[in-house]
């Protein structure tokens, strides 16, 4: 464990807590894409298959449970909670996210480190996480006034993977065998997808204005 990875995990933890806080306290999911939340639930389900068979550390297991629990409960809130679901604008959240799942699965079957079920599912979760934010970014472009919590959520979600890239650089130089091209490339693609969001987020913070993405 290094400082970059710990900072990345904490940033990721904060992003889901910010979202849960928003949905649980003000009982609203306005501006949040259910499709992105469903994709993330799928990412964690596919990545943490070995949560009970491959014990690494208490920290690792606890964090996996938090990510699984939070992502599935956010999907539950947005789908079934009688108050929260009313604030979900489904006619704006129209990204066809099923078109993301199949290509990621096919790519994972083609390009992976080892052709086993667990390894393919793990690789699938990496590819899917790289594109999971797309429905949310599209929704943000359509949402007139993005509320602060939603903007912070997306910012933290992008920042965590950027910190992971620093973690991979650090591990590459400190651990001889640590080479994971698949993880690195998909992590880089994922972070690059946030590039324009980061730009507008920084601009709104610098000029102290409301965050607004151009259509």
């Amino acid at each position: 464990m290094n400082i970059f990875r710990l900072a990345g995990d904490m940033t990721h933890l904060f992003s889901v807590l910010v979202l849960l806080l928003k949905i649980h306290t003000i009982k609203s999911c306005a501006g949040v894409s259910l499709k992105t939340q469903e994709l993330y639930a799928l990412v964690f389900a596919a990545r943490y298959l070995d949560i009970f068979t491959n014990y690494i550390s208490l920290y690792n297991t606890v964090m996996k449970l938090i990510f699984l629990g939070s992502s599935f409960s956010i999907v539950w809130y947005m789908r079934y909670h009688k108050i929260v679901r009313r604030s979900y604008d489904k006619d704006q959240d129209t990204f066809r996210h099923y078109f993301l799942i199949l290509p990621c699965l096919l790519l994972a079957l083609l390009i992976n480190e080892k052709f086993t079920f667990k390894e393919v599912m793990w690789t699938f979760s990496l590819y899917l996480e790289a594109v999971a934010i797309l429905p949310q970014l599209v929704l943000l472009q359509r949402t007139r006034n993005i509320d602060n919590l939603t903007g912070q959520y997306v910012f933290l979600l992008g920042a965590y993977r950027a910190l992971y890239i620093l973690n991979w650089v650090y591990r590459y130089f400190t651990e001889p065998h640590f080479v994971h091209w698949i993880t690195w490339v998909s992590g880089l693609v994922q972070t690059l997808l946030y590039a324009d969001f980061f730009y507008y987020y920084f601009q709104s913070w610098k000029n102290n204005q409301k965050l607004h993405l151009p259509a």
Binding site: R5, D50, N54, I56, K64
Partner: peptide, 10 residues
């Protein structure tokens, strides 16, 4: 073991 250790990230 190598592979298991490498899967120590979230």
């Amino acid at each position: 073991i190598k592979n298991q250790v490498d899967k120590d990230e979230l």
